[in-house]
């Protein structure tokens, strides 16, 4: 049976960190100021992935103390992910152009929005 477990040691970890850091810098560098708040909460949502690490730690807990702290980790991580998504999604649904007026943006119309955006 092949071993599919992941081993990331020393330099490989540094390569990953360097490339991921550069990717983050470049991706965010292109975002217009108008989107800075959703972006901040969007990137806040992305680090909610920490919940997955919490699940791993909790499932591997073998003492009551580890279970308690692991529970805490999953609780907080889940809050980060769910809350981050909820607020980012709400904010982004509000952006619309003049050609697409429905007053309060409660519904999302991605196709229409992209159609109108071509003239902006």
């Amino acid at each position: 049976m092949t071993d599919f477990s992941i081993h990331i040691t020393g330099f490989v970890a540094l390569y990953i960190f360097m490339l991921a850091g550069f990717a983050g810098w470049v991706i965010i560098g292109n975002v217009p100021a108008i989107l800075h708040t959703p972006l901040m909460s969007g990137s806040n949502f992305v680090h909610g992935i920490v919940v997955v690490g919490g699940i791993f730690a909790l499932l591997n807990a073998s003492t009551v103390q580890e279970q308690a702290i692991g529970f805490f980790a999953v609780l907080l991580g889940a809050g980060n992910a769910a809350g981050g998504f909820a607020v980012t999604d709400r904010m982004l649904a509000m952006f619309q152009t003049s050609g697409h007026q429905t007053g309060h943006a409660k519904l999302r119309h991605p196709k229409k929005a992209s159609h109108h955006a071509t003239k902006v």
Partner: peptide, 26 residues
Amino acid sequence: GLEGFVLQNPALMIAGMVVGAAGTLL
């Protein structure tokens, strides 16, 4: 990202570092 390295979890490493860099730029 750092805890991702400790847990050997590339998803945490990449997502964490992307946000680390993005947040720094912001």
